[in-house]
Design a protein around this nucleic acid. Structure first.
Length: 134
DNA sequence: GCCAACGTTGGC
DNA sequence: GCCAACGTTGGC
């Protein structure tokens, strides 16, 4: 099982939308690096739901429920399906993530504009700990 | 509102 | 194929 971080603007599609939908298609990604990560996902993988923009915090845990399928007209892009598992008892703000030495290597910090990034096992454990699911 | 980062585009 | 210009995005 692998771990990921998926970012979305909460005004556009946030955790509450995911709860309402129960399961959703993580589509509309139009960045090649992000798409390649989507293609690496397998059912059962876990992902942090991160709210960008005004909130800037990790807010919940999701499960990848279906491997990628083509997204869009020409088959260039990919989407996966996700479902919510659990809301983080304590959302983890970006400031906290940046201040945590054990998260210094977190990929989303290194490539801040990527909306789909991998999370290493050790980093995942730290994020769960900070989020109150340790 | 601005800026930094960085992906994309188009001219050469 | 290179690179400057431009557009987009997210954080501050």
């Amino acid at each position: 099982m692998r771990f990921w971080l998926l970012r979305s603007e909460p005004d556009v599609y946030g955790w509450d939308h995911l709860i309402r939908d129960g399961e959703t298609e993580w589509d509309g990604i139009r960045n090649y690096t992000a798409r390649n990560f989507l293609k690496e996902m397998t059912p059962g993988d876990r992902a942090i739901f991160y709210h960008s923009n005004k909130e800037k915090a990790a807010v919940g845990v999701m499960e990848i429920t279906r491997a990628w399928k083509p997204d869009g007209e020409n088959g260039t892009w990919a989407s996966v399906a996700v479902r919510p598992i659990e809301k983080l008892p304590t959302p983890v703000p970006l400031a906290t993530i940046k201040a945590e030495p054990r998260l210094a290597t977190l990929e989303v910090l290194r490539q801040s504009r990527l909306s789909v990034t991998p999370v290493r096992d050790a980093e995942w454990a730290v994020l769960m700990e900070l989020g109150g699911l340790g």
